[in-house]
Amino acid sequence: MSLENRHLLGLEGVSKNDIQLILDTAETFREVLERPIKKVPTLQGKTIVNLFFESSTRTRISFELAERRLSADVVNFSADMSSLKKGETLKDTARNIEAMKIDMVVMRHGAPGAALFLSKVINSVIINAGDGSHEHPTQALLDLYSIREKYNHIEGLNVCIVGDISHSRVALSNIHGLKTMGANIAVCGPATLIPRELDRLGVKIFNRIDEAIEWANVLNVLRIQLERQDKSFFPSLGEYRKYFAVTKDKIQKINKNITIMHPGPINRDVELSADLADGEHSIILQQVLNGVAVRMAVLYLLGTRS
């Protein structure tokens, strides 16, 4: 059994079979992560470059751990130490790195479509670790894995993504993945942060968080990107908090069985109340653990694909 595509650029167009294969494979790696020696020799001799043009802590560490636990050789490249500042293009940077005989590239880049572009100019296997506001497929896969782990299935569940949907690659990848796996999808947030085209993808739109909480089995709460505050998509943080924050009293009043997810990093008591983030409804740390296993699965499936 192999994946249909030799790259993972996004979840749009990825088949149900492929997503299922990745999730099933990740289960094996979850078991590996429980071992005293959390390392297997599978990708010995493969060289993987983590090419990060945007800052990231957890995604990069998660990928790096996954790579090292598969025994690959790992090279990290981040923008602040790069030649980009000297004016080199992405194409030249990538071609130069590839000339050093590498096998796979994990890339994060600010421009939507950067991963697809890279896959056309070099021969290595490309894994998209986030391209602007477009896609972040491994995050969505680990979200799917975490939902499946909790409920044993994904089909038929009501999953609502809360927050800044317009600028979120996590939201878009999740929508594609959840749709393929047969979940019912909704989004909730300020109207200025919800793209109107979403209803064409079959996504429900809630303008009130109470309605979203009542409807959902799972709430995937996104980070409010404080750095975008100057563009005033909503009047103030206080107002956002008042209308869209997910808090414990709302959950207890409306839907006690709900599951809370968050891709991190959390702004505590902005989009999600601290007690909820640490409470019994939350599977946030489980998501982080599953992230390593899911990335190992993707690296394994693409790295040993014949």
């Binding site: 059994m1 192999s2 099933d24 494979t25 094996t28 590996v32 297997v40 020799p41 599978t42 394994y300 499936l301 040993t304 694909r305 014949s306």
Partner: peptide, 16 residues
């Protein structure tokens, strides 16, 4: 995950 011929075989074995 411990096989020494993963690069040579022509089908990808399913991890169980």
């Amino acid at each position: 995950l411990y096989r020494d011929d993963l690069k040579e075989i022509h089908y990808q074995p399913l991890l169980k």
